[in-house]
């Protein structure tokens, strides 16, 4: 019993920074879980990755103006990320170009701009923080930010859920009934950017994408109903946060990558064993229904 306690719970009971990291993971999971599912279903899996790079110039400008101030860099990243997302979304809405292409084009421009600004600033060390984060250094203001973003994004998602689902399945339908599909699309993009920025300090934007996409990508192997996919990916994201933090604590490994690698392990298991299309499952299933 003592062993289990010291293995599974003691790190969180003993250390405040571990508790805060765990709460940050919970908040990130609640926000990122559903967003990741919709990104995958809209075939925008790589857009999260693109956006995580696109926020760089915003963070760099804030860094140039205010020094290493997390609130300023968060706001800067959000503004630039939002601009890139809305521009790319508009290009897709108004021209025949597909979303993956317009996002790729604009995030590359934004990234190059960011790199140029960073080198103008003369130091790249601190800015690596933005990309890779430091979840064990999460302080109370950062925690409040992450929790607030998770709450906002859940509420907005609940409000746009029906429209967003229809917009994903059959965009022509909303146009025919004048349901305003663009509204849902753009609100969703805002949520994507918000949740990436939420990961800024804790996991870093690059790792935050991992928590967004890996559980969602795993979910498809376990269920074929969107509501269950969302529950699954939120639950798995949080579980990965918990397990990853423990692994990183006991083995003295960096925490962000430990969390994401745990999610990676879940993904591999899902690909192999998931009841819907898993590799081994298909091999093992020798029986089938009569009709």
């Amino acid at each position: 019993m003592d062993l289990l306690w010291s293995l599974l719970a003691a790190p969180f009971a003993d250390y405040g920074f571990m508790r805060r990291a765990l709460v940050a993971c919970l908040a990130l999971a609640v926000g990122c879980g559903p967003i990741g599912v919709f990104l995958i279903l809209r075939r925008m899996s790589l857009v999260g990755d693109a956006m995580s790079h696109a926020v760089l110039p915003g963070a760099a400008i804030a860094f140039l103006l205010f020094g290493f101030s997390l609130p300023a860099m968060t706001v800067g990243g959000f503004v630039v990320g939002l601009a890139v997302a809305l521009l790319a979304g508009s290009v897709t809405r108004l021209t025949p170009q597909r979303e993956d292409t317009s996002f790729a084009a604009l995030f590359l421009v934004s990234l190059a701009l960011g790199v140029m600004l960073v080198s103008a600033a003369g130091t790249s060390v601190d800015l690596m923080h933005v990309l890779f984060g430091a979840i064990l250094a999460v302080d109370d203001p950062a925690l409040v930010l992450v929790a607030a973003i998770a709450s906002i994004s859940l509420m907005v998602l609940a409000a746009i859920y029906r429209g967003l689902v229809i917009e994903c399945v059959d965009p022509g339908f909303l146009r025919a009934v004048q349901g305003g599909g663009a509204r849902y699309h753009f609100l969703f993009l805002v949520l994507v950017v918000l949740n990436l920025v939420a990961g800024f300090q804790s996991l870093g934007t690059l790792m935050a994408v991992g928590l967004m996409m890996l559980p969602a990508a795993s979910a498809r192997f376990w269920t074929m109903e969107i509501g269950r996919m969302i529950l699954f990916s939120t639950g798995v994201a949080f579980a990965c946060g918990y397990v990853g933090l423990l692994v990183s604590y006991h083995l003295s490994l960096p925490s962000g990558p430990a969390v994401i690698l745990t999610a990676g392990a879940v993904y591999v298991l899902s690909v192999l064993l998931g009841p819907h299309g898993g590799l081994l499952t298909a091999r093992l299933r020798s029986r089938h229904y009569q009709r």
């Binding site: 109903e225 969107i226 996919m229």
Partner: peptide, 10 residues
Amino acid sequence: TEVDRQFPLP
């Protein structure tokens, strides 16, 4: 072809 039939919807 205009409907995403792979979408996990009942």
